[in-house]
Design a protein around this nucleic acid. Structure first.
Length: 294
DNA sequence: AAGGCGTGGAG
DNA sequence: TCTCCAAGCCT
């Protein structure tokens, strides 16, 4: 397949993608926008390998936004299983309801309309518009930021959090042709996921190693501010995870006593439970009982 | 506008 | 073992 584009990076990356793209269910031409949207929610901070089984079950059970919207949010939280960040399940459910109410049950193809949906930020809106509808958008995730940081800026790692400069760089790297831009979006992301990885980049396998500013500079090590390691043991996050695991496993309401058993520190346990209730992930019932939201 | 928000695999 | 980190979003 021939590719025409303005940057010398485009052709090699697009050709590499033609050969090396992973076969993923949400990339199947028959998958549709809802499949893309579900996958994008699940892939926010969760690796592909762990998403796959949950995604398959989800799409089998809820093949359309209306199917999901018709069920209580707690079912979404339960089906989310252990993907992590279960607020995403709640937001996906709320987004499905908004799609039914505002868009006749069809995932909108408009970037602004997508951005208005719960749980859809700049990245996800661009990803859906590009992957599902073939539009020209800068789809800037951590993979793309890393690829551009190395190939163009010439540094080992991108900035810790996305910046306006990252977006400008991504926009400037975008092919002008719409279809090519959409292809570039997936391709450059896939390159970051498979070759231009954070830890040990496989530069020997990289289609643009001869043009990579970072490689040409001698692959200098990262010298930015230290990245803060996220501790997990003993945090409220861990407690929330344990509480929710109990509630997911039970079909009906659970007595508070059962929740008390999962964490020794009462103060922290109460705080975590209150937080879950405030987030809408847990519903308190009379007589000291709790359940996933109905 | 930093910091909160889960979970588990890989090196 | 332990550290890093994986297609972010929201407040």
């Amino acid at each position: 397949m021939l590719h025409q584009s303005g940057s010398p990076l485009h052709a090699p990356v697009l050709q590499w993608y033609d050969v090396n793209a992973r076969v993923l269910p949400w990339r199947d031409p028959s998958a549709g926008p809802w499949a893309v949207m579900v996958s994008e929610f699940m892939l926010q901070q969760t690796p592909v390998a762990r998403v796959l089984p949950a995604y398959q079950r989800w799409m089998e059970r809820w093949p359309t936004p209306a199917d999901l919207a018709a069920e209580p949010p707690g079912e979404a939280v339960r089906a989310w299983d252990r993907l992590g960040y279960p607020r995403r399940a709640l937001r996906l459910h709320a987004a499905a309801q908004a799609i039914v109410e505002r868009h006749g049950g069809e995932v909108p193809d408009d970037h602004a309309a997508l951005l208005d949906l719960p749980g859809v930020g700049t990245y996800t809106a661009a990803a859906i518009a590009s992957f599902a509808f073939g539009q020209r958008h800068a789809v800037v995730d951590t993979n793309v930021r890393r690829v551009l940081a190395r190939a163009i800026t010439g540094v080992a790692q991108p900035t810790i959090s996305p910046t306006a400069a990252d977006l400008r760089l991504a926009v400037s790297a975008l092919p002008s042709d719409e279809a090519t831009a959409a292809r570039w979006a997936v391709a450059s992301m896939e390159l970051g996921a498979l070759v231009c990885t954070a830890r040990t980049p496989r530069c020997a396998d990289c289609p643009i190693r001869s043009q990579c500013a970072w490689v040409l500079a001698g692959s200098p090590p990262y010298d930015g501010p230290p990245r803060k390691g996220q501790t997990y043991e003993g945090t409220d996050r861990q407690v929330r995870g344990r509480l929710l695991a109990v509630l997911r496993s039970e079909q009906d309401a659970v007595p508070k006593k059962a929740l008390d058993a999962c964490w020794p520190d009462q103060v922290q346990r109460e705080r975590a439970l209150d937080g879950l209730v405030a987030d809408g992930l847990v519903e308190p019932l009379p007589r000291n009982r709790y359940r996933l939201p109905a």
